[in-house]
Design a protein around this nucleic acid. Structure first.
Length: 798
DNA sequence: CAGTGAGCGAGCTTCCGCTTGACTT
């Protein structure tokens, strides 16, 4: 059966919804995003020919294009209904070109909400493709290609193959590198924070009042002087100030704010959040999840209002319109919201439920009344002193939106005690102290980025789009520029001085500081590449570069600027920088001399070598009399930028001998997968709590025996060249470095060598994996396993 | 897995933004 009208949208889920609204004269299909792009191989831009782009149908889109071609030929009218933004306009244009659509029967339509009314309205108000907007997109695309494909090859040559640079990713890396340098350069200072607990001086209405001193002392001496003064001082309330305050809800979610809240509240990575949201979207539970708009449709506002009145009453409802303020927003979609606002929860996995409920709460709260509070500040003066104590209290007069949703914040401040209820107090009331205490605190370095806070920063700078935030974060990790890591904190000493009944007590205490969870750290390569880019392509990695070119794209879109002129103006000087950078020597800072080893007098340096960052003891171009230099890989978490001479020297303490067992030396070392004990040719991992620098012979022997026991249990049958082994996924056959499946119905205990060979032949004999010469059977086994793994990885990639 | 760190130089890598699936171990 053939329909008169073909409507093409970007997303299949959207197509499904729209089809319901349009009736049976309309067939709604999806293009699955862009169908055409610059050629995959080579630059794809003809520089000599006024930057003429060379497009091709994307690899995975041939089937879609074929189907759409057929359907569009059959249809009487084709409606290009891609999103109303730059990319959407380009998608419509590429469709028209690729499908060879007859202009007389093709129209471009857009709608802002997915309702029957809006869509029928759109059909009534068709237009043509706006070529200026298409040109703006082409300029964007071509600029990104020129930057990416001209700078990346320079990195392959100067630093390492397969690296990459781009308008978005390189700035993201720069943010992380520069933040790390701020942290490295940060000098923490300590100060004393003074708190007091007061009681009334008469016993009639007992209470205790917590308060903070309005100054912080720099030294212990000052602090003790102050406490001494307090011994005999008189305290009284010199002021009570009440101030009304209100809090307003945040706007509904965009992609970036959803990623941030899901990260803060549930610890989701940005990729995780997006894939859960994708499932909710496909199930029709929420609106589109890649959006920069905080706008809600009139339908959503109405039904939020009804839901709020039903659940909480009229005084909780407050209809609000939000304006999107992020840079470069294109507003093709609504904010992320539940499709049905009357449903506070849904069925699904626990993650889906959590995310849905978060979206529901945020959306509903955004349409609720302000919370109103009363803040009270009580000032307590001290006789013969300028200093004052202050107690603050907060009373919630009306909860409003807080009934539903409380937003989390990135900087979790240590003292969140500003919301206490104060006891009844009066001016000039006399107080006595119960305890006055001063605790040593430390200034904090700026926080490292999390995935989500990086996205927040990128959005502020207008870098990247909702559809690329998560992929960009994973690209810079894949390239090895940054890693997401946990770090264990360190113990720190601090003082606490307290006074009760005139007696001053000084204590030394301990706390753990510097613990990091899922934070982004730059690698040495990341720092090196960043410095190279900043030095040679300052303009492109400038934080304002995107904002500047966006302004020009807007001018192209409004017809004030020709796209080829804009690109030419950018490319000419850019390409000169490319040529210049080829002449520069290897990026600076590739080697750093730390100093001299006091024991041997040899030079200690660090650099990036073929297998990563290493410390080097000695100089390689020394005279023949010198021995070859020694090398040691840097440990995880150590950076060339910040490693000290002492830390570098310590790396050479391993491997070290710790004794003998069964006439074989025991050597402790640090491998790629952590600390180990080597016993002859066998390697045994150290436990979590074993320190390779202090581990004893006894402990090592214990570990070896443990491993031996495991090995014993591993072998089920041993026919010398063929073995039946117990593996992670159950028993399997091992032969010539390869693993073979053991069918479930075979009794493993009754296996013979012949039966094994039969099973192997059935599965096809795999080529023997040559083991490294001079290795024992056991190590041959392990190398065989990895070799097989590597092969299968390659296969899936193809 | 647990070494290595130099060197011939084939053929490969790479961007940003739109969209979803497709494979198993």
């Amino acid at each position: 059966m053939q329909q008169d009208n073909l409507v093409i949208v970007e997303s299949p889920a959207k197509a499904k919804t729209i089809e319901k609204f349009l009736g049976d004269k309309f067939l709604v299909k999806s293009s699955y995003g862009h169908i055409r792009d610059l050629v995959k191989k080579g630059l794809g831009v003809d520089i000599e020919n006024n930057y003429k782009p060379e497009y091709e149908i994307s690899e995975d889109k041939h089937a879609v294009v074929k189907e759409l071609k057929k359907l569009s030929k059959e249809a009487k009218h084709v409606w290009l209904a891609s999103d109303e933004d730059r990319e959407g306009e380009a998608i419509a244009w590429h469709l028209q070109e690729t499908l060879n659509l007859d202009k007389s029967k093709t129209n471009r339509i857009v709608f802002h909400e997915i309702t029957k009314n809006a869509i029928q309205n759109a059909i009534k108000n068709p237009r043509d493709i706006d070529n200026n907007i298409v040109d703006a997109q082409q300029a964007r695309r071509i600029l990104d290609r020129l930057v990416g494909f001209e700078v990346s090859p320079i990195l392959w040559k100067k630093v390492k193959p397969s690296l990459s640079a781009g308008r978005v990713q390189s700035v993201a890396v720069r943010l992380i590198v520069e933040r790390e340098r701020e942290i490295i350069g940060f000098k923490s200072e300590s100060f004393y924070k003074v708190c007091a607990i007061f009681n009334p001086d008469s016993a009639e209405n007992p209470f205790s009042l917590k308060s903070d001193l309005n100054v912080k002392f720099k030294t212990l001496k000052e602090t003790e002087e102050f406490l001494n003064h307090c011994k005999s001082a008189k305290f009284s309330i010199s002021g009570i100030e009440k101030k009304p305050a209100k809090k307003s809800p945040s706007p509904p979610f965009t992609t970036s704010t959803l990623q941030q809240e899901a990260s803060r509240k549930f610890g989701f990575s940005v990729g995780q959040t997006m894939s859960i949201a994708q499932r909710l979207y496909e199930a029709g539970k929420i609106t589109y999840m890649r959006t920069d708009s905080t706008n809600l449709s009139s339908f959503a506002i109405d039904s939020a209002k009804n839901t709020i009145i039903n659940l909480y009453g009229t005084k909780y409802s407050n209809v609000r319109q939000y304006k999107t303020k992020s840079k470069g927003a294109q507003e093709a979609h609504e904010a992320i919201r539940p499709t049905e606002l009357e449903n506070p929860s849904i069925s699904g996995t626990s993650q889906e439920k959590k995310l849905y409920e978060l979206i529901w709460k945020r959306t509903i709260a955004s349409q609720m009344s302000d919370a109103s509070l009363e803040k009270t500040v009580v000032t307590i003066s001290i006789s013969d002193s300028e200093y004052k104590f202050q107690a603050t209290g907060e009373i919630l007069l009306f909860d409003g939106f807080l009934k539903v949703y409380i937003e989390s914040s990135d900087d979790e401040t240590e003292d969140g005690d500003s919301g206490d209820l104060l006891p009844p107090l009066r001016e000039n009331q006399k107080l006595v102290y119960n305890e006055i205490s001063a605790t040593e605190r430390f200034t904090q370095h700026p926080a490292r980025y999390t995935e989500a806070s990086l996205v927040k920063k990128m959005e502020e700078l207008g870098i990247g789009r909702p559809s690329t935030y998560a992929p960009t974060v994973s690209t810079i990790m894949q390239r090895g520029y940054v890693t997401k890591e946990d770090r264990q904190g360190e113990q720190r000493e601090y003082f606490r001085v307290s006074m009760k009944k005139g007696i001053i007590k000084k204590e030394k205490k301990h706390e753990i500081t510097g613990t990091e969870k899922s934070k982004l750290f730059p690698s040495d390569i990341g720092m090196l590449v960043n410095d190279f880019l900043v030095e040679n392509f300052r303009k492109v990695v400038d934080y304002n570069f995107t904002a500047n070119v966006e302004e020009q794209f807007d001018e192209i879109a409004s017809g004030e600027l020709e796209w080829t002129k804009m690109i030419d103006k950018f490319y000419k000087p850019f390409h000169i920088d490319i040529e210049k950078s080829k002449d520069t020597s290897r990026p600076a800072a590739s080697e750093k001399v730390l100093g001299v080893d006091p024991k041997t007098g040899k030079q200690v340096s660090v650099r990036i070598a073929r297998f990563g960052p290493v410390a080097q003891l000695g100089v390689s171009d020394d005279t023949q009399s010198e021995a070859k230099p020694m090398y040691a890989s840097l440990k995880k978490g150590q950076l060339i930028e910040s490693i000290s001479l002492e830390e570098a020297l310590k790396l050479f303490d391993l491997p070290r001998e710790i004794g003998k067992y069964e006439d074989t030396v025991l050597v402790v070392g640090l491998g790629r997968f952590g600390p180990y004990v080597r016993f002859g040719k066998q390697f045994v991992s150290l436990g979590k709590n074993d320190d390779p620098y202090t581990v004893t012979q006894e402990r090592a022997i214990e570990l070896i025996e443990e491993k031996r026991l495991k090995e014993k249990e591993k072998v089920i049958k041993n026919f010398e060249d063929v073995q039946v082994l117990n593996g992670r996924f159950g028993p399997y056959i091992f032969f010539e470095g390869n693993n073979y499946k053991l069918p479930k119905d075979v009794d493993k205990d009754a296996l013979t060598r012949e039966k094994c060979m039969e099973l192997i032949e059935q599965q096809g004999v795999k080529p023997a994996k040559a083991s490294k010469s001079g290795k024992s059977d056991k190590s041959a086994k392990t190398t065989g396993m990895t070799a097989k793994k590597a092969v299968s990885v390659k296969k899936t990639k193809k």
